[in-house]
């Protein structure tokens, strides 16, 4: 195998490892940190089922963001859903053996690249042109958007502008990463740039604001049932406090 193939394979495993370990640690931290008080925010559901509905509205529709800012919602929502579709579109590459029939029908999903770029550019434009958003943006906020845009653009170049690599090699390289049956990587630079940036994205997931993805499920303002008068909600450290103080 060529040096570059080895480097990329190593980098892939490293990125995935960093991502998995990092996210696991973060999720473990969130899960083990107590929530001492009931702090659901309005409009607060009174039942567990209500919380599930609320979470679905937030995760699938970005309901709060819609209320807050229609433009940000449009850009953000398009970008995230396009990302999901494109993720599905990439599954066949990694599928060990023959991918199920349905995954071979995902060809049209490639067009999701355009709403993706539209959404990302909109978000980037907001960072530049809306003074409030510019004020709160750190370099990492711009860079992350640029990284995503660059990934999308290299993808578009390959798919729509004939910069595609040898697809047979892509399949066997990608599948080989999963099945540990490594094979040679195509050497087209656009392709290499594309996957390099994706690996970077994966690697920085747990140390970046991409933590909002697991974070949203742990947000107590969103995931709590508003039933404080009915059930006592108390954290372990508060129980210890009670035991230690005489007056109860």
């Amino acid at each position: 195998m060529s040096l570059i193939s080895i480097l990329f394979a190593v980098f892939f495993y490293l990125a995935v490892l960093l991502c998995l370990v990092g996210v696991t640690l973060k999720v473990a931290q969130y899960a083990s940190t107590p929530v001492p008080l009931k702090i659901p925010t309005a409009p607060a559901p009174l039942t567990k089922f209500g919380v599930v509905l609320r979470m679905m509205r937030e995760v699938f529709l970005f309901a709060s963001l819609f209320r807050a800012s229609k433009w940000t919602w449009l850009f953000g929502w398009l970008f995230h859903w396009a990302l999901v579709l494109l993720f599905i579109r990439h599954l066949p590459y990694f599928w060990p053996g023959e991918a199920p029939q349905i995954l071979h029908q995902t060809e049209p999903l490639k067009y999701a690249a355009f709403p993706l770029i539209f959404g990302l550019s909109g978000l980037l434009a907001r960072r530049f042109f809306v003074d409030r958003v510019r004020y709160i943006s750190a370099p990492s906020d711009y860079l992350l958007l640029l990284l995503l845009i660059a990934i999308a653009l290299t993808g578009v170049l390959m798919t729509f502008a004939h910069y595609y690599p040898d697809m047979g090699m892509v399949y066997s390289f990608a599948e080989g990463l999963i099945t540990l049956n490594w094979s040679e990587l195509p050497s087209e630079s656009v392709f290499l740039a594309h996957i390099f940036m994706v690996f970077v994205l994966i690697a920085i997931f747990p140390i970046s604001k991409m933590l909002h993805a697991p974070g949203v499920f742990f947000s107590p303002t969103l995931n709590q049932v508003d039933d404080a008068r009915k059930k006592r909600h108390i954290s372990d450290w508060a129980i210890d406090k009670e035991k230690n103080s005489k007056s109860g």
Partner: peptide, 24 residues
């Protein structure tokens, strides 16, 4: 506070600086 209140680490990590709250 980060160890005692889950809201703190989650809120500090999750913000994507979208600015939706900025004018609220």
């Amino acid at each position: 506070t980060i160890e005692k209140y889950r809201s703190i680490p989650v809120f500090l990590d999750a913000c994507v600086k979208c600015g939706a709250c900025a004018d609220k």
